[in-house]
């Protein structure tokens, strides 16, 4: 049975009458990249703040398997008069790691900062600060790494670099990655939790989410002429979980792609309707997210 890096049980956080988190319960598997998804104000930063020990929950409890947690805020800032190398050295020392010079250089190399390692941080761009934040966070080899919107507001190249770095961390640390950029989450995360207005509305794998919310896997069938006979034939099948007709197009869903692949084409052939095209619909996380948070 896989162990969990983080267990959150019924955590709530209230600021006066405002409920920032409402009885959130979730588990983060060890070594995974875990996406914390939700619109702005959903409670993602509050939950990360609680896990980082920066805020106290009003109710509930949580446990973290590792004693070593690193945090990267959404807009990391550092002492502007320190150099990048000094910042990483300080982070290592405070993390209880006597990182030798080559270990610090290695982290700076990985994050693409080795050429500016001895430059003061005051002149760094937003993307460079984000990479420095990751360098400072990973140098002390944390068991749990909390990344709050690490790619938000970065240009496409900066975003690509940050996502690649997060992907490289898989297996080294457990990463909780908060974001409202769903493409990023879809790309790097193994499991996700969706928060909206402080409540957890989904937790699990991306595939599971898409399957659960869209009633399984969906195919799009375009018929020449009237789609009625095809729709009637499909409705009679017990493996169909949902059916939707839009003029000459039929959307049909089932619990498994195997059933759709094996049953759909013979059925349409039996009905004799002229089929223009047939194929699966790729559900994006964004479509599903909008359904869940609506």
């Amino acid at each position: 049975m896989p162990t969990n890096a983080v267990e959150v049980t019924g955590i709530s956080k209230r600021y006066g009458s405002v409920v920032a988190l409402d009885a959130v319960t979730l588990s983060v598997p060890e070594g995974s990249v875990y996406g914390l998804v939700g619109p702005n104000g959903a409670g993602k930063t509050t939950l990360l703040g609680i896990l980082a020990g920066l805020r106290s929950p009003t109710d509930g409890a949580f446990s973290i398997a590792s004693h070593h947690v690193s945090v990267l805020p959404d807009t990391p800032k550092f002492e502007p008069w320190l150099t990048a190398r000094e910042t990483v050295e300080l982070s290592a020392a405070l993390g209880g790691i006597q990182a030798p010079a080559d270990a610090v250089a290695n982290v700076l190399e990985r994050t693409g900062l080795i050429d500016v390692a001895d430059r003061k941080v005051s002149g760094f761009s937003r993307g460079m600060l984000q990479r420095l934040g990751i360098a400072a966070a990973v140098v002390s080899r944390p068991g749990l790494l909390l990344l709050d919107e690490p790619a938000a507001a970065l240009d496409p190249q900066g975003r690509r670099e940050v996502l690649d770095l997060v992907t490289e961390l898989r297996g080294e640390s457990t990463v909780i990655f908060s974001s409202h950029i769903l493409d990023d989450v879809q790309e790097v995360c193994d499991e996700i939790a969706i928060l909206t207005r402080g409540s957890l509305v989904y937790q699990g794998t991306l595939d599971g989410l898409i399957r659960d919310v869209t009633h399984g896997y969906t195919y799009r069938i375009e018929i020449r002429g009237d789609a009625g006979p095809a729709a009637r034939a499909l409705r009679a099948c017990n493996w169909v979980t949902q059916i939707k007709v839009e003029e000459s197009v039929v959307f049909v869903s089932a619990d498994s792609t195997v059933v759709l692949e094996s049953e759909l084409v013979p059925l349409l052939a039996d009905t004799g309707v002229p089929v223009v095209s047939i194929g699966p619909i790729e559900q994006s996380l964004e479509d599903v997210f909008l359904d869940v948070t609506r």
Binding site: S70, V71, P73
Partner: peptide, 8 residues
């Protein structure tokens, strides 16, 4: 942001 760096 700097406080988070030190406090954590």
């Amino acid at each position: 942001e700097i406080a988070v760096f030190y406090r954590t």
